[in-house]
Computed example of a mutant assay.
Amino acid sequence: MNLFAGVALTAATFLGMEFVAWFMHKYVLHGPLWFLHRSHHVRHPHHFERNDFFFLFYGGLSMLLMVYGGPEKDWRYWVGMGVAVYGTLYFFVHDVLIHRRLPFWRRTQSAYLRALNMAHKIHHKTTGRDGSQEFGLLWVSPKYFTLARRRAANPPARSASAAQ
């Protein structure tokens, strides 16, 4: 497979992973695998969650595809690369920015990232298996863009004591 086709397949896989993530989150994690995903919806004192096992699944799948497709750089390599790129972005956006699991990237000026954060917070308003909304990671409903832009234009007023 030539480089252009490989990069195109990686990009297509990356984009397809958003649908896979949405589908798996809505119908599998909030379905039969809720016993693992539940740890992500409740407060706990632990640094790790049962939900973190899903990283091992997707990371392992990506690694296997890249290892077995690597010598010939066939479709498996490029699909594995797309899964890896999506997983890396997922980690930084979901775990670092939204859930603050690492102590950097606390604030953003990006209306898109603020909208994404709002949508995810709406998803976590429900701590049970049923009733959640907004299951994707990168696609954000337009209503959250409106809210994010409105908040950027009208930042919350700071009290006089906080300004000093």
Rank of each mutant, 00 (worst) to 15 (best):
Y86P: 01
G128Q: 09
G131V: 01
R76V: 03
V79I: 15
F104R: 07
L137T: 05
L89G: 13
A152M: 11
G69T: 06
F92Q: 12
A115Q: 06
Q133T: 09
V85S: 04
Y144I: 06
G70R: 03
H123I: 00
W105C: 03
W75H: 11
L137K: 01
M81S: 09
N154H: 10
I122L: 01
A152H: 00
F91R: 05
R76E: 11
V140L: 11
T127E: 12
N154A: 11
R76L: 15
P103T: 13
L113N: 09
V83E: 01
F104M: 14
V85I: 15
H99A: 14
T88K: 01
L97E: 04
I98R: 04
M81G: 03
N154I: 06
L113M: 15
G128S: 07
V96L: 14
V79A: 09
G69L: 06
F91K: 02
V83W: 02
D74S: 01
Q133N: 06
H123T: 02
Y90A: 05
G128N: 12
Y144H: 07
Y112N: 09
Y144G: 02
R101P: 03
Y112S: 10
F91S: 03
T108I: 13
L97P: 02
M118F: 04
Q133R: 13
V79G: 00
N154L: 11
F91C: 10
W75Q: 10
T146F: 15
K121P: 01
R129A: 13
L97V: 13
G136L: 06
A152V: 12
G87E: 00
